[in-house]
Amino acid sequence: MVGERIKELRKRKGYSISELAKHAGVSKSYLSYIERDVQKNPSLQFLSKIAKTLDTNIEYLLGQEIEEELDEEWIALIKKAIDDGVDKSEFQKYLDFIKFKKWEERDRSL
């Protein structure tokens, strides 16, 4: 699934595998393995680089689009993180890590 989504987005952008690998700073052979589903567990770092280069997010690559509204508890947690000095970049890395771990757990159960 991840490989299919990467390949689809890559083609929409008009990139060859070589071009995407170069722009994302990843190995061409590893990218090919992911797209062909030879390698099924890409690293979080790899997914992050690919998502950024393809103007998408890790959720989309992992097939986890979320459509939930924020309730007061979520808003309070986010405000607390900001008050504690967590910047957007750090928060995004934390979210990416959590999404990756959930995806990894789901993949193991299949």
Rank of each mutant, 00 (worst) to 15 (best):
72 E>T: 11
58 I>S: 04
81 A>D: 06
50 I>W: 07
33 Y>A: 07
81 A>M: 12
49 K>D: 02
8 E>Y: 11
103 W>Y: 09
98 I>H: 08
102 K>I: 10
46 F>I: 11
3 G>W: 11
28 K>D: 02
15 Y>W: 08
21 A>K: 05
65 E>V: 11
28 K>I: 05
30 Y>W: 05
54 L>I: 14
70 L>H: 01
63 G>C: 12
49 K>F: 06
76 A>F: 02
89 S>C: 05
58 I>A: 04
12 R>V: 09
38 V>R: 02
28 K>S: 03
104 E>F: 03
96 D>P: 13
56 T>K: 06
60 Y>Q: 04
32 S>I: 01
94 Y>T: 15
92 Q>N: 12
43 S>Y: 02
25 G>T: 00
22 K>I: 04
66 I>E: 14
22 K>R: 15
6 I>E: 10
61 L>K: 06
17 I>Y: 06
59 E>N: 14
40 K>R: 14
28 K>H: 02
65 E>S: 07
31 L>N: 04
87 D>Y: 07
80 K>N: 09
12 R>Q: 15
63 G>N: 09
100 F>M: 08
36 R>H: 09
78 I>F: 06
85 G>C: 10
46 F>M: 08
105 E>L: 01
71 D>T: 05
108 R>V: 03
35 E>F: 00
27 S>V: 05
53 T>D: 09
43 S>W: 06
74 W>M: 02
19 E>W: 05
105 E>S: 03
72 E>Q: 13
18 S>Q: 10
48 S>Q: 03
